[in-house]
């Protein structure tokens, strides 16, 4: 049932229906961007699309909220 996405080239398993944010968090990747000023690590916080902490670029697209975006087979994400 599970499929895979890649995170910085590393393969991460996904259960269908999981969000990108959930798949990363489950795989132990708990931060995937740095803040503009302090360079602080950020990952999931509110989990429901309110805080925008979890912004991530998938397949080279403009940043989206990882907690809302369902993962699709073959998605490639890069952390910073």
């Amino acid at each position: 049932m599970t499929f895979h996405i890649t995170v910085d080239g590393r393969s991460v398993p996904v259960v269908p229906g999981q969000t990108i944010g959930a798949a990363l968090h489950a795989a132990g990747v708990r931060s995937w961007r740095s803040t503009r000023f302090g360079g602080r690590p950020r990952g999931l916080f509110c989990g429901i699309g309110v805080c925008f902490d979890c912004l991530i670029s998938v397949n080279g697209r403009a940043p989206e909220r990882a907690c809302l975006l369902e993962a699709a087979p073959g998605d490639e994400v890069t952390t910073s």
Partner: peptide, 22 residues
């Protein structure tokens, strides 16, 4: 703001929506 600190609802949403224990 450290990763791993979630809202209570965020932890719940992760579990209910994606089956992931925070």
């Amino acid at each position: 703001d450290l990763p791993g600190v979630l809202t209570a609802g965020g932890a719940q949403a992760l579990l209910k929506g994606s089956g992931v224990v925070a």
